[in-house]
Amino acid sequence: MTSILIFAGESDELDRQAVSLAASLGPVEVASVGPTKIGGVEKAWQIEHPILSDYAPEAIAESLAQLVGQGMPSAVIAAGTERNNEVMAHLAALLDLPLATNVLTVSAEGDDWHLTRVRWGGSLIEEATLSAFLKLLTVAPHSQPAWEESKAATPEIFEPELAEELGRTRVRERVTVDEGISLTTAPVIVSGGRGVGSAEGFAALEELAGLLGGAVGCSRVVTNNGWRSHRDQVGQTGTRVAPHLYVACGISGAIQHWVGMMAAKNVLAINTDPEAPMVTKADYAVIGDLHEVLPAIISEIRRRQGTM
């Protein structure tokens, strides 16, 4: 039986989810730039080349194309992260093959694969067929359980031949900024929408987030109005978040916002409109003007902490 090649390397957790999907389709081999901790697979390849000393999508894709030429797997699969989608698009373009991104399920009977994949950032599911002798796909994050096995095999080194020119799209510099708690890791997100009314209106959200050890998020209306940086935007064209608690203040709950925060464990909506989708879909709600509700919550917390 031909194997499935997993391209791993960005996030151990998401890579393992991709392995889970692949393992249901055939024997799995893993390829990565640098070492991988994934075990329980047929084989591990470690790709080595000076150009790959930092992220270089074209060069990684060319390496994978060469590896594929050697082993002839039936599919190359990667977790659907922003970078992997980019690398896999390069691989697909190099080989002139179709690519299905953010796949949820695969049924691999017959030559064509039938699959479902994410559309509209998660608001729709597409049923599709993928016809190619080598299938290329990325796996929608958090759609599969993670592959547990960790007893990593000794990897075989693979040294691709890479033309100098492939380094043209490599990272040239890295700049770090101290942004405090990031949206992707914050346990609590206090998020504001049009209802907040102004940039200054976010002071109360900042204060509550501070008290809860969380970060501040916002809707697209807020970034479009220039009240907050786009770094804070949650949703289809912003960041996807999965905090323990998401507090949505003055956010209506449009589908493009919802898909960005639907993975939150608990949702609390604060909204003047009891019929707003955010309210009807939330676990908890307060009906009222956020400009009255937030200060009252903040002083209640301070009162209980004895810091009033």
């Binding site: 609390l268 309210v279 908890y284 709600a285 307060v286 009222g288 009252a296």
Partner: peptide, 19 residues
């Protein structure tokens, strides 16, 4: 999801902090 309404306006604050 059956939404649990914690209250209306500023009066909801204690229930929110309980949560």
């Amino acid at each position: 999801t059956a939404t649990r309404v914690l209250g209306r306006g500023a009066d909801a604050a204690p229930a929110v902090v309980d949560l």
